[in-house]
């Protein structure tokens, strides 16, 4: 536990808004293949996808998101029932077990960016901070792909 506590303190002492993909405290958390779709204007919500891997020995809990791009960034889950009806609902905390990866991908979990502060322009990028209950934060740079993108490689 102790090294983690120290790491957390170090992380909290760091200034916000650093444009690197991972901060000192979050060596155990790796965010890969992050991408978002471009938006039309600001009235529609945006969606962000990524893979979050816990390399550590203890579970981590993703509790929230922050970005200056949107007032209300939240994790949502799309579910499609047997009748083919899709619905979307907010997800509270996400616990990632040691060694596990949680995928935010189309048709499943996604970070929904509500109340956009500016349009999400294709080929630009923005910073998204993931907040964890016990290990501080991880900030990732998310590239914005086209509206018709289907994955990080598009």
């Amino acid at each position: 536990m102790k090294p983690h506590r120290i790491a957390l303190l170090v992380a909290l002492a760091l200034p916000f808004g650093i444009a690197t993909s991972a901060l000192a405290d979050s060596d155990d958390i790796v965010v890969e293949n992050a991408w978002a779709r471009a938006s039309i204007g600001t009235s529609r919500p945006g969606a962000v996808y990524m893979e979050i891997r816990n390399k550590g020995d203890e579970p981590v809990t993703l509790t929230g998101l922050q970005t200056d791009l949107a007032m209300m960034p939240k994790i949502h889950r799309t579910a499609t029932d047997e009748q083919g009806v899709s619905s979307m609902s907010p997800v509270g905390e996400i616990v990632i077990a040691p060694g596990e990866t949680v995928a935010l991908e189309p048709g499943g979990l996604h970070a929904m960016l509500m109340q956009l502060q500016r349009p999400m322009e294709e080929s630009e990028s923005f910073l998204l901070t993931l907040t964890f209950s016990d290990r501080g934060e991880t900030t990732v740079e998310v590239p914005i792909l086209g509206i018709a993108a289907r994955g990080p490689e598009d």
């Binding site: 919500p45 969606a47 899709s86 979307m88 048709g107 929904m112 960016l113 018709a148 993108a149």
Partner: peptide, 17 residues
Amino acid sequence: FTYCPDVCPTTLADISG
């Protein structure tokens, strides 16, 4: 619907493919 952030653009992108 066009205010749909996840399923609809994915379906439209799939169909385009």
